Amino acid sequence: GSLMYASIFGNVSAIIQRLYSGTARYHTQMLRVREFIRFHQIPNPLRQRLEEYFQHAWSYTNGIDMNAVLKGFPECLQADICLHLNRSLLQHCKPFRGATKGCLRALAMKFKTTHAPPGDTLVHAGDLLTALYFISRGSIEILRGDVVVAILGKNDIFGEPLNLYARPGKSNGDVRALTYCDLHKIHRDDLLEVLDMYPEFSDHFWSSLEITFNLRDTNMIPGSPGSTELEGGFSRQRKRKLSFRRRTDKDTEQPGEVSALGPGRAGAGPSSRGRPGGPWGESPSSGPSSPESSEDEGPGRSSSPLRLVPFSSPRPPGEPPGGEPLMEDCEKSSDTCNPLSGAFSGVSNIFSFWGDSRGRQYQELPRCPAPTPSLLNIPLSSPGRRPRGDVESRLDALQRQLNRLETRLSADMATVLQLLQRQMTLVPPAYSAVTTPGPGPTSTSPLLPVSPLPTLTLDSLSQVSQFMACEELPPGAPELPQEGPTRRLSLPGQLGALTSQPLHRHGSDPGS
Protein backbone atom coordinates (compact mmCIF):
# COMPACT_ATOMS: atom_id res chain seq x y z
CA GLY A 1 0.00 0.00 0.00
CA SER A 2 2.82 2.39 0.79
CA LEU A 3 4.41 1.69 -2.61
CA MET A 4 1.15 2.48 -4.38
CA TYR A 5 0.82 5.69 -2.38
CA ALA A 6 4.38 6.80 -3.27
CA SER A 7 3.95 6.20 -7.00
CA ILE A 8 0.64 8.07 -7.14
CA PHE A 9 2.01 10.99 -5.16
CA GLY A 10 5.13 11.23 -7.37
CA ASN A 11 3.16 11.19 -10.61
CA VAL A 12 0.69 13.82 -9.41
CA SER A 13 3.50 16.13 -8.28
CA ALA A 14 5.27 15.74 -11.65
CA ILE A 15 2.07 16.58 -13.51
CA ILE A 16 1.52 19.66 -11.37
CA GLN A 17 5.14 20.76 -11.86
CA ARG A 18 4.86 20.48 -15.65
CA LEU A 19 1.64 22.48 -15.60
CA TYR A 20 3.25 25.30 -13.71
CA SER A 21 6.60 25.23 -15.56
CA GLY A 22 5.22 27.37 -18.43
CA THR A 23 3.71 29.78 -15.92
CA ALA A 24 7.02 30.01 -14.09
CA ARG A 25 8.86 30.86 -17.31
CA TYR A 26 6.23 33.45 -18.15
CA HIS A 27 6.56 35.14 -14.78
CA THR A 28 10.35 35.06 -15.07
CA GLN A 29 10.27 36.80 -18.46
CA MET A 30 7.62 39.24 -17.26
CA LEU A 31 9.80 40.20 -14.31
CA ARG A 32 12.65 40.91 -16.74
CA VAL A 33 10.42 43.17 -18.84
CA ARG A 34 9.22 45.09 -15.79
CA GLU A 35 12.78 45.46 -14.53
CA PHE A 36 13.76 46.84 -17.94
CA ILE A 37 10.88 49.35 -17.78
CA ARG A 38 11.82 50.43 -14.26
CA PHE A 39 15.54 50.75 -15.01
CA HIS A 40 15.03 52.97 -18.09
CA GLN A 41 12.11 54.89 -16.55
CA ILE A 42 9.83 54.32 -19.53
CA PRO A 43 6.67 56.49 -19.32
CA ASN A 44 3.28 54.95 -18.66
CA PRO A 45 1.73 54.86 -22.21
CA LEU A 46 4.77 53.16 -23.70
CA ARG A 47 5.06 50.90 -20.65
CA GLN A 48 1.52 49.67 -21.16
CA ARG A 49 2.19 48.94 -24.82
CA LEU A 50 5.29 46.92 -23.94
CA GLU A 51 3.44 44.76 -21.41
CA GLU A 52 0.52 44.15 -23.75
CA TYR A 53 2.80 43.15 -26.61
CA PHE A 54 4.74 40.76 -24.39
CA GLN A 55 1.56 39.09 -23.16
CA HIS A 56 0.20 38.68 -26.68
CA ALA A 57 3.49 37.41 -28.07
CA TRP A 58 3.73 34.86 -25.26
CA SER A 59 0.26 33.57 -25.92
CA TYR A 60 0.97 33.50 -29.68
CA THR A 61 4.30 31.64 -29.54
CA ASN A 62 4.17 30.18 -26.02
CA GLY A 63 7.48 31.84 -25.28
CA ILE A 64 9.39 30.03 -28.03
CA ASP A 65 11.94 31.93 -30.08
CA MET A 66 11.08 30.77 -33.58
CA ASN A 67 14.16 32.28 -35.17
CA ALA A 68 16.49 30.53 -32.73
CA VAL A 69 14.79 27.21 -33.42
CA LEU A 70 14.98 27.75 -37.18
CA LYS A 71 18.68 28.62 -37.11
CA GLY A 72 19.43 25.31 -35.44
CA PHE A 73 18.70 23.38 -38.65
CA PRO A 74 20.89 23.12 -41.76
CA GLU A 75 20.34 25.58 -44.59
CA CYS A 76 18.68 23.13 -46.96
CA LEU A 77 16.18 22.21 -44.25
CA GLN A 78 15.66 25.86 -43.40
CA ALA A 79 14.63 26.51 -47.02
CA ASP A 80 11.99 23.78 -46.84
CA ILE A 81 10.68 25.11 -43.52
CA CYS A 82 10.50 28.69 -44.85
CA LEU A 83 8.77 27.45 -48.00
CA HIS A 84 6.12 25.80 -45.81
CA LEU A 85 5.70 28.84 -43.55
CA ASN A 86 5.22 31.20 -46.53
CA ARG A 87 3.21 28.79 -48.68
CA SER A 88 -0.02 30.80 -48.46
CA LEU A 89 1.68 33.97 -49.67
CA LEU A 90 3.59 32.27 -52.49
CA GLN A 91 0.51 30.39 -53.70
CA HIS A 92 -2.13 33.12 -53.56
CA CYS A 93 -0.11 36.18 -54.50
CA LYS A 94 -0.21 36.79 -58.25
CA PRO A 95 3.41 38.03 -58.78
CA PHE A 96 4.84 34.71 -57.46
CA ARG A 97 2.85 32.48 -59.77
CA GLY A 98 4.87 30.71 -62.41
CA ALA A 99 8.15 30.88 -60.50
CA THR A 100 10.43 27.86 -60.42
CA LYS A 101 10.93 25.82 -57.27
CA GLY A 102 14.44 27.15 -56.82
CA CYS A 103 13.26 30.74 -57.14
CA LEU A 104 10.49 30.16 -54.58
CA ARG A 105 12.95 28.61 -52.14
CA ALA A 106 15.30 31.57 -52.51
CA LEU A 107 12.43 34.01 -51.97
CA ALA A 108 11.12 32.08 -48.96
CA MET A 109 14.54 32.32 -47.31
CA LYS A 110 14.48 36.10 -47.68
CA PHE A 111 10.98 36.69 -46.27
CA LYS A 112 10.57 37.65 -42.62
CA THR A 113 7.31 37.39 -40.68
CA THR A 114 6.33 40.29 -38.42
CA HIS A 115 3.53 40.21 -35.84
CA ALA A 116 2.08 43.60 -34.88
CA PRO A 117 -0.43 44.34 -32.10
CA PRO A 118 -3.17 47.00 -32.46
CA GLY A 119 -1.89 50.56 -32.32
CA ASP A 120 1.66 49.63 -33.29
CA THR A 121 3.20 51.95 -35.91
CA LEU A 122 5.01 49.92 -38.55
CA VAL A 123 6.30 52.81 -40.70
CA HIS A 124 6.57 56.47 -39.71
CA ALA A 125 6.30 59.42 -42.06
CA GLY A 126 9.74 60.29 -43.44
CA ASP A 127 11.24 56.83 -42.89
CA LEU A 128 13.20 55.24 -45.71
CA LEU A 129 11.23 52.54 -47.52
CA THR A 130 13.70 49.67 -47.30
CA ALA A 131 11.19 46.78 -47.60
CA LEU A 132 8.06 45.61 -49.40
CA TYR A 133 5.18 44.46 -47.14
CA PHE A 134 2.56 41.74 -47.80
CA ILE A 135 -0.37 41.57 -45.35
CA SER A 136 -1.16 37.98 -44.38
CA ARG A 137 -3.69 38.60 -41.57
CA GLY A 138 -5.33 41.62 -39.95
CA SER A 139 -5.82 45.18 -41.13
CA ILE A 140 -3.80 48.38 -41.06
CA GLU A 141 -4.50 52.06 -41.65
CA ILE A 142 -2.39 54.71 -43.39
CA LEU A 143 -2.50 58.24 -41.99
CA ARG A 144 -1.21 61.58 -43.20
CA GLY A 145 -1.14 63.75 -40.16
CA ASP A 146 -4.40 62.90 -38.38
CA VAL A 147 -6.28 61.97 -41.53
CA VAL A 148 -6.79 58.32 -42.50
CA VAL A 149 -6.16 58.02 -46.24
CA ALA A 150 -6.39 54.22 -46.66
CA ILE A 151 -7.23 51.00 -44.83
CA LEU A 152 -5.58 47.81 -46.08
CA GLY A 153 -6.41 44.18 -45.31
CA LYS A 154 -5.41 40.64 -46.19
CA ASN A 155 -3.35 40.08 -49.40
CA ASP A 156 -2.75 43.81 -49.83
CA ILE A 157 0.73 45.13 -50.64
CA PHE A 158 2.25 48.44 -49.60
CA GLY A 159 5.67 49.97 -50.09
CA GLU A 160 7.15 51.35 -53.32
CA PRO A 161 7.93 49.95 -56.80
CA LEU A 162 11.57 49.06 -56.39
CA ASN A 163 12.26 48.66 -60.10
CA LEU A 164 11.45 52.30 -60.87
CA TYR A 165 13.85 53.93 -58.42
CA ALA A 166 17.55 53.37 -57.91
CA ARG A 167 17.44 54.67 -54.34
CA PRO A 168 14.92 54.11 -51.56
CA GLY A 169 12.41 56.91 -51.07
CA LYS A 170 10.79 58.35 -47.98
CA SER A 171 7.38 57.45 -46.64
CA ASN A 172 4.61 59.98 -47.12
CA GLY A 173 2.52 58.76 -44.16
CA ASP A 174 2.26 56.62 -41.04
CA VAL A 175 1.31 52.93 -41.20
CA ARG A 176 -0.50 51.77 -38.05
CA ALA A 177 -2.00 48.39 -37.17
CA LEU A 178 -5.73 48.36 -36.44
CA THR A 179 -5.84 44.72 -35.31
CA TYR A 180 -3.33 41.99 -34.66
CA CYS A 181 -1.52 41.66 -37.98
CA ASP A 182 0.82 39.16 -39.56
CA LEU A 183 3.03 40.76 -42.19
CA HIS A 184 5.51 39.20 -44.61
CA LYS A 185 8.23 41.65 -45.52
CA ILE A 186 11.22 41.31 -47.80
CA HIS A 187 14.03 43.83 -47.88
CA ARG A 188 14.83 45.76 -50.99
CA ASP A 189 18.35 44.40 -51.45
CA ASP A 190 17.27 40.80 -50.86
CA LEU A 191 14.47 40.99 -53.43
CA LEU A 192 16.71 42.58 -56.07
CA GLU A 193 19.39 39.96 -55.41
CA VAL A 194 16.98 37.07 -56.00
CA LEU A 195 15.54 38.68 -59.13
CA ASP A 196 19.06 39.16 -60.49
CA MET A 197 19.68 35.43 -60.06
CA TYR A 198 16.46 34.62 -61.96
CA PRO A 199 16.17 37.23 -64.74
CA GLU A 200 13.49 35.25 -66.60
CA PHE A 201 11.23 35.56 -63.56
CA SER A 202 12.10 39.22 -62.95
CA ASP A 203 10.12 40.55 -65.93
CA HIS A 204 7.02 38.59 -64.96
CA PHE A 205 7.28 39.71 -61.34
CA TRP A 206 7.51 43.45 -62.07
CA SER A 207 4.79 43.32 -64.72
CA SER A 208 2.30 41.50 -62.48
CA LEU A 209 3.15 43.27 -59.21
CA GLU A 210 0.31 45.58 -58.14
CA ILE A 211 1.13 47.68 -55.09
CA THR A 212 -2.08 48.53 -53.24
CA PHE A 213 -0.70 51.72 -51.72
CA ASN A 214 2.49 53.43 -52.84
CA LEU A 215 4.12 54.98 -49.79
CA ARG A 216 6.82 56.82 -51.72
CA ASP A 217 6.60 60.58 -51.36
CA THR A 218 5.65 62.02 -54.74
CA ASN A 219 7.44 65.27 -53.93
CA MET A 220 10.78 63.44 -53.88
CA ILE A 221 11.59 64.25 -57.49
CA PRO A 222 14.93 65.55 -58.79
CA GLY A 223 15.30 69.24 -58.03
CA SER A 224 12.65 69.37 -55.29
CA PRO A 225 13.53 70.55 -51.76
CA GLY A 226 12.92 67.07 -50.33
CA SER A 227 15.16 65.51 -52.92
CA THR A 228 17.89 67.97 -52.05
CA GLU A 229 17.60 67.03 -48.39
CA LEU A 230 17.79 63.33 -49.23
CA GLU A 231 20.75 63.60 -51.55
CA GLY A 232 22.31 66.80 -50.28
CA GLY A 233 25.91 65.70 -50.33
CA PHE A 234 25.58 63.87 -53.63
CA SER A 235 23.88 66.83 -55.34
CA ARG A 236 26.48 69.33 -54.18
CA GLN A 237 29.29 67.05 -55.27
CA ARG A 238 27.67 66.54 -58.68
CA LYS A 239 27.19 70.28 -59.20
CA ARG A 240 30.81 70.88 -58.26
CA LYS A 241 31.98 68.34 -60.84
CA LEU A 242 29.81 69.84 -63.56
CA SER A 243 31.01 73.38 -62.85
CA PHE A 244 34.62 72.18 -62.90
CA ARG A 245 34.08 70.57 -66.31
CA ARG A 246 32.49 73.72 -67.71
CA ARG A 247 35.40 75.83 -66.55
CA THR A 248 38.00 73.45 -67.91
CA ASP A 249 36.20 73.34 -71.27
CA LYS A 250 36.41 77.13 -71.43
CA ASP A 251 40.10 76.97 -70.59
CA THR A 252 40.88 74.80 -73.61
CA GLU A 253 39.41 77.45 -75.93
CA GLN A 254 42.31 79.87 -75.19
CA PRO A 255 45.53 78.19 -76.42
CA GLY A 256 47.58 81.41 -76.48
CA GLU A 257 48.38 81.46 -72.75
CA VAL A 258 50.17 78.98 -70.52
CA SER A 259 49.60 79.07 -66.78
CA ALA A 260 51.65 77.33 -64.11
CA LEU A 261 48.94 77.74 -61.49
CA GLY A 262 46.71 74.84 -62.54
CA PRO A 263 43.84 74.44 -64.98
CA GLY A 264 41.55 76.78 -63.07
CA ARG A 265 43.54 79.89 -64.13
CA ALA A 266 44.68 78.84 -67.58
CA GLY A 267 41.65 80.42 -69.20
CA ALA A 268 41.86 83.76 -67.39
CA GLY A 269 42.49 86.75 -69.61
CA PRO A 270 45.06 89.48 -69.05
CA SER A 271 42.51 91.56 -67.16
CA SER A 272 42.15 88.90 -64.47
CA ARG A 273 45.85 88.50 -63.65
CA GLY A 274 45.70 90.82 -60.71
CA ARG A 275 42.69 89.17 -59.09
CA PRO A 276 43.35 86.73 -56.23
CA GLY A 277 41.75 83.64 -57.64
CA GLY A 278 40.53 84.41 -61.13
CA PRO A 279 37.43 82.39 -61.90
CA TRP A 280 38.10 80.26 -58.81
CA GLY A 281 38.13 83.17 -56.39
CA GLU A 282 34.94 82.06 -54.64
CA SER A 283 36.33 78.59 -53.82
CA PRO A 284 40.13 78.51 -53.57
CA SER A 285 40.24 74.76 -52.92
CA SER A 286 37.98 73.74 -55.80
CA GLY A 287 40.63 73.11 -58.43
CA PRO A 288 44.07 71.51 -58.14
CA SER A 289 47.21 73.57 -58.54
CA SER A 290 50.85 72.87 -59.22
CA PRO A 291 53.54 73.13 -56.51
CA GLU A 292 54.48 76.59 -57.75
CA SER A 293 51.04 77.92 -56.79
CA SER A 294 52.19 78.47 -53.21
CA GLU A 295 54.43 81.29 -54.41
CA ASP A 296 51.38 83.20 -55.64
CA GLU A 297 50.31 84.01 -52.07
CA GLY A 298 53.03 86.59 -51.53
CA PRO A 299 53.00 90.28 -52.45
CA GLY A 300 53.28 91.47 -56.01
CA ARG A 301 50.91 88.88 -57.33
CA SER A 302 50.18 90.71 -60.55
CA SER A 303 53.90 90.82 -61.44
CA SER A 304 54.64 87.23 -60.45
CA PRO A 305 56.78 85.32 -63.00
CA LEU A 306 54.66 82.22 -62.58
CA ARG A 307 52.34 83.24 -65.39
CA LEU A 308 53.95 82.40 -68.73
CA VAL A 309 53.09 83.84 -72.12
CA PRO A 310 54.97 83.11 -75.35
CA PHE A 311 57.55 85.79 -76.16
CA SER A 312 57.20 87.64 -79.43
CA SER A 313 60.91 88.26 -80.03
CA PRO A 314 62.13 86.93 -83.41
CA ARG A 315 64.33 83.87 -83.59
CA PRO A 316 67.84 83.92 -85.06
CA PRO A 317 67.98 82.68 -88.66
CA GLY A 318 70.05 79.59 -87.86
CA GLU A 319 68.18 78.59 -84.72
CA PRO A 320 66.40 75.25 -84.97
CA PRO A 321 62.68 75.17 -84.19
CA GLY A 322 63.18 73.33 -80.90
CA GLY A 323 64.23 70.14 -79.18
CA GLU A 324 62.31 66.92 -79.10
CA PRO A 325 59.35 66.90 -76.68
CA LEU A 326 59.22 64.73 -73.61
CA MET A 327 55.78 63.30 -74.36
CA GLU A 328 54.34 61.89 -77.55
CA ASP A 329 51.46 64.36 -77.45
CA CYS A 330 53.85 67.35 -77.56
CA GLU A 331 54.31 66.92 -81.30
CA LYS A 332 50.54 67.09 -81.84
CA SER A 333 49.12 69.48 -79.28
CA SER A 334 51.91 71.69 -77.85
CA ASP A 335 52.97 75.12 -79.04
CA THR A 336 55.60 75.50 -76.31
CA CYS A 337 58.17 72.84 -75.55
CA ASN A 338 59.12 71.53 -72.14
CA PRO A 339 61.96 73.38 -70.35
CA LEU A 340 64.05 70.21 -70.44
CA SER A 341 64.05 70.19 -74.23
CA GLY A 342 65.79 73.57 -74.26
CA ALA A 343 68.62 72.15 -72.19
CA PHE A 344 69.79 70.04 -75.13
CA SER A 345 69.89 72.87 -77.67
CA GLY A 346 73.58 73.65 -77.10
CA VAL A 347 76.69 72.90 -75.07
CA SER A 348 76.35 76.13 -73.16
CA ASN A 349 72.96 75.04 -71.91
CA ILE A 350 74.49 71.77 -70.77
CA PHE A 351 77.00 73.57 -68.54
CA SER A 352 74.47 75.98 -67.08
CA PHE A 353 71.40 73.73 -66.83
CA TRP A 354 71.95 72.26 -63.37
CA GLY A 355 73.07 75.51 -61.79
CA ASP A 356 70.13 77.71 -62.68
CA SER A 357 67.45 75.22 -63.69
CA ARG A 358 64.82 77.09 -61.73
CA GLY A 359 65.74 80.37 -63.34
CA ARG A 360 65.61 78.84 -66.82
CA GLN A 361 62.15 77.50 -66.14
CA TYR A 362 60.64 80.83 -67.14
CA GLN A 363 63.06 81.82 -69.91
CA GLU A 364 62.20 82.00 -73.57
CA LEU A 365 61.80 78.58 -75.11
CA PRO A 366 61.92 77.66 -78.80
CA ARG A 367 58.57 77.26 -80.42
CA CYS A 368 57.32 74.34 -82.40
CA PRO A 369 56.13 75.32 -85.89
CA ALA A 370 52.52 74.15 -85.43
CA PRO A 371 50.34 76.68 -83.51
CA THR A 372 48.33 73.97 -81.74
CA PRO A 373 46.95 74.15 -78.18
CA SER A 374 49.50 74.18 -75.40
CA LEU A 375 50.53 71.06 -73.55
CA LEU A 376 50.64 72.90 -70.26
CA ASN A 377 47.21 74.38 -70.93
CA ILE A 378 45.49 71.00 -71.14
CA PRO A 379 43.11 70.78 -68.13
CA LEU A 380 43.43 68.00 -65.63
CA SER A 381 41.13 65.20 -66.66
CA SER A 382 38.49 64.16 -64.20
CA PRO A 383 38.01 60.47 -63.28
CA GLY A 384 34.92 60.38 -65.48
CA ARG A 385 36.80 61.55 -68.60
CA ARG A 386 40.04 59.58 -68.60
CA PRO A 387 40.71 56.32 -66.78
CA ARG A 388 43.19 56.38 -63.98
CA GLY A 389 45.29 53.67 -65.62
CA ASP A 390 45.79 55.84 -68.72
CA VAL A 391 47.12 58.71 -66.61
CA GLU A 392 49.46 56.40 -64.70
CA SER A 393 50.80 54.86 -67.91
CA ARG A 394 51.51 58.33 -69.32
CA LEU A 395 53.31 59.31 -66.12
CA ASP A 396 55.40 56.13 -66.26
CA ALA A 397 56.33 56.80 -69.90
CA LEU A 398 57.30 60.37 -69.03
CA GLN A 399 59.44 59.18 -66.12
CA ARG A 400 61.25 56.64 -68.31
CA GLN A 401 61.98 59.25 -70.96
CA LEU A 402 63.27 61.67 -68.33
CA ASN A 403 65.62 58.97 -67.05
CA ARG A 404 66.90 58.31 -70.56
CA LEU A 405 67.49 62.02 -71.17
CA GLU A 406 69.31 62.38 -67.87
CA THR A 407 71.57 59.42 -68.67
CA ARG A 408 72.29 60.82 -72.12
CA LEU A 409 73.07 64.25 -70.68
CA SER A 410 75.49 62.77 -68.13
CA ALA A 411 77.30 60.80 -70.85
CA ASP A 412 77.63 63.88 -73.08
CA MET A 413 78.97 66.00 -70.25
CA ALA A 414 81.49 63.33 -69.28
CA THR A 415 82.70 63.08 -72.89
CA VAL A 416 83.08 66.85 -73.27
CA LEU A 417 84.96 67.18 -69.99
CA GLN A 418 87.24 64.29 -70.96
CA LEU A 419 88.10 65.97 -74.28
CA LEU A 420 88.85 69.27 -72.56
CA GLN A 421 91.14 67.56 -70.05
CA ARG A 422 92.97 65.73 -72.85
CA GLN A 423 93.47 69.01 -74.71
CA MET A 424 94.95 70.65 -71.62
CA THR A 425 97.41 67.79 -71.05
CA LEU A 426 98.66 67.72 -74.67
CA VAL A 427 99.38 71.48 -74.91
CA PRO A 428 102.77 72.58 -73.35
CA PRO A 429 102.59 75.25 -70.65
CA ALA A 430 104.47 77.98 -72.57
CA TYR A 431 106.19 78.63 -75.90
CA SER A 432 108.95 81.07 -76.94
CA ALA A 433 110.01 82.38 -80.36
CA VAL A 434 113.71 81.78 -79.47
CA THR A 435 114.65 78.20 -78.68
CA THR A 436 117.69 76.91 -76.83
CA PRO A 437 120.62 75.61 -78.93
CA GLY A 438 120.63 71.94 -79.58
CA PRO A 439 123.57 69.54 -79.70
CA GLY A 440 123.70 69.23 -83.49
CA PRO A 441 122.23 70.32 -86.76
CA THR A 442 119.17 68.17 -86.13
CA SER A 443 117.91 70.77 -83.68
CA THR A 444 116.69 73.14 -86.38
CA SER A 445 113.08 72.00 -85.90
CA PRO A 446 111.30 74.67 -83.90
CA LEU A 447 108.58 72.49 -82.42
CA LEU A 448 107.70 68.87 -82.03
CA PRO A 449 104.97 67.68 -84.38
CA VAL A 450 101.60 67.55 -82.66
CA SER A 451 99.19 64.90 -83.79
CA PRO A 452 95.63 66.10 -84.49
CA LEU A 453 92.74 65.06 -82.26
CA PRO A 454 91.08 61.77 -83.16
CA THR A 455 87.83 62.03 -85.05
CA LEU A 456 84.81 61.90 -82.75
CA THR A 457 82.67 58.91 -83.56
CA LEU A 458 80.23 58.93 -80.67
CA ASP A 459 76.62 59.59 -81.50
CA SER A 460 76.32 61.99 -78.64
CA LEU A 461 79.25 64.14 -79.86
CA SER A 462 77.86 64.22 -83.37
CA GLN A 463 74.62 65.51 -81.98
CA VAL A 464 76.52 68.12 -79.98
CA SER A 465 78.32 69.28 -83.14
CA GLN A 466 74.99 69.48 -84.96
CA PHE A 467 73.58 71.63 -82.22
CA MET A 468 76.75 73.78 -82.33
CA ALA A 469 76.20 74.38 -86.03
CA CYS A 470 72.63 75.53 -85.44
CA GLU A 471 72.93 77.35 -82.14
CA GLU A 472 74.90 80.54 -81.46
CA LEU A 473 77.17 79.96 -78.48
CA PRO A 474 77.36 82.61 -75.76
CA PRO A 475 80.62 84.54 -75.38
CA GLY A 476 81.82 82.62 -72.34
CA ALA A 477 81.25 79.12 -73.69
CA PRO A 478 84.34 76.97 -74.50
CA GLU A 479 84.92 76.06 -78.13
CA LEU A 480 84.89 72.50 -79.37
CA PRO A 481 87.16 71.05 -82.11
CA GLN A 482 85.66 71.24 -85.60
CA GLU A 483 86.43 69.55 -88.89
CA GLY A 484 89.37 70.76 -90.97
CA PRO A 485 93.00 71.51 -90.06
CA THR A 486 93.39 71.56 -86.32
CA ARG A 487 95.55 74.11 -84.51
CA ARG A 488 96.27 74.61 -80.85
CA LEU A 489 94.75 77.76 -79.47
CA SER A 490 97.77 78.41 -77.23
CA LEU A 491 100.33 78.46 -80.13
CA PRO A 492 101.36 81.75 -81.76
CA GLY A 493 99.51 82.67 -84.90
CA GLN A 494 102.66 83.19 -87.14
CA LEU A 495 104.35 79.79 -86.87
CA GLY A 496 104.89 79.67 -90.65
CA ALA A 497 107.14 82.75 -90.54
CA LEU A 498 109.37 81.18 -87.90
CA THR A 499 110.34 78.29 -90.13
CA SER A 500 111.48 80.60 -92.99
CA GLN A 501 113.80 82.79 -90.83
CA PRO A 502 117.32 81.57 -89.89
CA LEU A 503 117.91 80.71 -86.31
CA HIS A 504 120.00 83.14 -84.28
CA ARG A 505 122.70 81.18 -82.46
CA HIS A 506 124.96 82.51 -79.72
CA GLY A 507 128.51 81.12 -79.69
CA SER A 508 132.28 81.99 -79.98
CA ASP A 509 134.46 81.37 -83.01
CA PRO A 510 137.62 79.41 -82.00
CA GLY A 511 139.60 81.05 -84.79
CA SER A 512 138.94 84.61 -83.58
Rank of each mutant, 00 (worst) to 15 (best):
T372G: 09
A397Y: 05
G256K: 10
N403I: 04
E331R: 09
I221S: 12
P325Q: 08
L461W: 01
K239E: 11
L365C: 09
L461R: 10
E253V: 09
D335P: 10
R360E: 08
P321W: 12
R404A: 06
M468K: 06
C337Y: 08
A260D: 13
R167Q: 13
E231C: 13
H504V: 11
L419V: 10
L376C: 07
D189R: 07
A131N: 10
M327V: 13
T248W: 07
P263F: 09
G159K: 01
C470H: 09
S357C: 13
V148T: 09
L491N: 13
F158K: 01
P225I: 10
A177D: 01
D396N: 05
L453G: 11
P441H: 13
S235A: 10
S303A: 12
S508D: 05
G126R: 02
M220T: 12
S302Q: 13
L402N: 06
S224C: 08
R265A: 13
G169C: 02
M327D: 14
R265L: 12
G438L: 06
D459Q: 13
I221Y: 06
G169R: 01
G355F: 04
R167W: 10
G476A: 11
E257T: 09
P454S: 09
E295F: 07
P485V: 04
S303W: 13
P317Y: 06
G511D: 05
S381A: 05
A266M: 12
L503I: 07
T407M: 04
P299T: 12
S283H: 15
Y198R: 02
L162I: 12
P321R: 10
G287E: 10
K185S: 14
I140Y: 04
C337L: 09
L191Y: 02
I151V: 12
L395W: 15
R144F: 03
P454A: 10
D356C: 04
S286I: 01
L183Q: 01
R137K: 13
R408L: 08
F234I: 10
A268V: 12
S136W: 05
S312R: 10
G232C: 12
G476D: 08
T252D: 07
G256L: 11
V347Y: 09
D174Q: 15
Q494G: 12
V175R: 02
D174I: 06
T336M: 06
S451M: 13
P441D: 08
L162F: 11
E324V: 14
S285D: 04
T457D: 09
R358S: 09
V347K: 12
G507L: 11
H184C: 09
P288F: 04
D335N: 05
T212G: 04
S243N: 11
S272C: 01
L132F: 04
S432Y: 04
D190C: 03
P478W: 08
P291S: 13
P452F: 11
L398G: 03
I378C: 11
N349P: 11
L162G: 08
Q501G: 11
Q466Y: 06
Q463S: 08
S271E: 10
L419Y: 09
P161F: 03
D459W: 04
T442E: 11
S313E: 12
Q254W: 13
T435M: 10
S271I: 12
F201Q: 05
T436N: 12
R188W: 09
R367D: 09
L242W: 14
